[in-house]
Design a binder for these strands. Structure first.
Lengths: 252, 252
DNA sequence: TCGTCATGTGCAGTAGTATGCACGAGTCGG
DNA sequence: CCGACTCGTGCATACTACTGCACATGACGA
């Protein structure tokens, strides 16, 4: 039977999804082709990041969550500076929505214990970090989006619609005048928009490396948020451009 | 059966997680390979920092590597035994509600990575612990009850009403024939009841010290759950009494 | 229609890797 | 100190992977 190369690769990926593994020799026999061809396919799939090669065959891509653990440990000085600056935005007695991400986690860790505040978050990591804090904590539930470790999806959006807050401290992965605020996941972008609507003010936590960067999915325009907290050099061309566009920038 | 080298290493790591130890000779017999191969695998895993070699086999990475806070979280051997036994109750492809608490956390940590399962939990700690696991995770939101680090209260109950599961692994602080299953917080008791109604079966995780104990707030009667998983001595008078009352006890 | 080019496939040869076995050294517990 | 066990190393073997090449196919343009 004649089979298109792309069909063959789909079959290989299907097999990986179903069985969680794949032996090159077996697949060659099953698809009636040579092992070389299977190996070539697997090599290309691996390069495309769709599978992982192992001796003898392939396995599905590793749950790419290990990266978060590493990111979590290093609250870089940059993120730390931004987090410290964010503390100024939090009024005593107010309600704050804390986004996921390392900068927000740093904010949670730095929250003064004598600050009376209610924290709403869709990040279980942040909820856990606040266990020792006297603050009232409200968790938004939903499907756990493993990459950023936040509740996400329709259920999370629905839960978010039930709350109101004074301030939303939002994390993004890109801040540019042309693309606005962007992030790497479409569901996450929607969740951020929902949370933003539930707060009187939204401030963006943007450590240095986010300034001038752009990710695939737009979250909000720059004029839809109250301002940006960043530790980037005030002379930074992008910051200068933001200032010209009347975007408030809180210098960390 | 053809087994990929990488699969073999995964199996070894799983075994270390569940049993906390591993004997090279036994694993060689079990995986139908030579001791040399097992030893080579263990050597490589040790180099990668994923286990520690000891004479005769291997143990998980030194607890000394974990922080003090982390060590506090380490389940007692009793809870570990119960958690291991609970794994048997989890069917591939099923949906499990995991309660809060250290025993449930241990279950989450021990979940084999090749077990296809959906986990619903109101514990952010457990959600975070499952980040590296391929399982689908659904978080129930609500007010964070700091003492047990779970979402609780009316909002959590409402969220719980939206889900259904095959199994609820419930933690309690007291198991007695006369008082039934009890816990220390009235909201938590209500939450456990709600979760129990959302699952086809409820099993109670009761490590040794819970047997015979009673806490202020009743959760359910003993005849309202499918059974109890405990590592207490089968000769224990309370267990004997439970047996007379037709309560199923899964011996850990 | 023909030649040419790009592409995909299979084959052969070579390099690389995994495994099991044998042997000597090391380790353990009495 | 001894016997039993475990460990590491070197080696032979079998398997897997990669490279270069030949061949077939189909597209494209002259």
């Amino acid at each position: 039977m004649q089979r298109l190369a792309s069909e063959r690769k789909e079959l290989l990926l299907d097999r990986l999804r179903v069985d969680g593994r794949l032996v090159a020799k077996d697949m060659a026999a099953e698809l009636d082709t040579s092992e070389d061809t299977i190996r070539r396919d697997l090599r290309e799939l691996a390069v495309a990041g769709l599978c992982r090669r192992v001796y003898g065959g392939a396995i599905p891509v590793a749950p790419a969550a290990a990266s978060y653990a590493r990111r979590q440990e290093i609250a870089t000085t940059s993120k730390h500076r931004v987090a410290v600056a964010c503390l100024e935005l939090i009024q005593p007695g107010s309600t704050v929505i804390l986004d996921g991400g390392t900068t927000a986690l740093e904010v949670a860790r730095l929250l003064p214990h004598d600050l009376d505040v209610t924290v709403i978050t869709h990040s279980p990591t942040i909820a856990v970090a606040l266990v020792d804090h006297p603050a009232e904590v409200f968790i938004l539930g939903g499907r756990l989006f493993k990459h950023s470790v936040v509740a996400s999806g329709a259920a999370a959006a629905e839960a978010a619609a039930q709350v109101s807050a004074d301030l939303f401290l939002m994390g993004v992965t890109g801040v540019r005048p042309d693309t606005g605020l962007t992030t790497g996941d479409v569901d996450e972008a929607a969740m951020k928009r929902t949370l933003s609507r539930r707060a009187a003010q939204t401030w963006v936590m943007a450590s240095e490396e986010k300034i001038g960067a752009a990710s695939p999915f737009p979250v909000l325009r720059l004029d839809e948020v109250a301002g940006i907290v960043s530790d980037a050099d005030p002379q930074h061309p992008v910051l200068a451009e933001l200032a010209r566009a009347d975007v408030r920038v809180l210098q960390a």
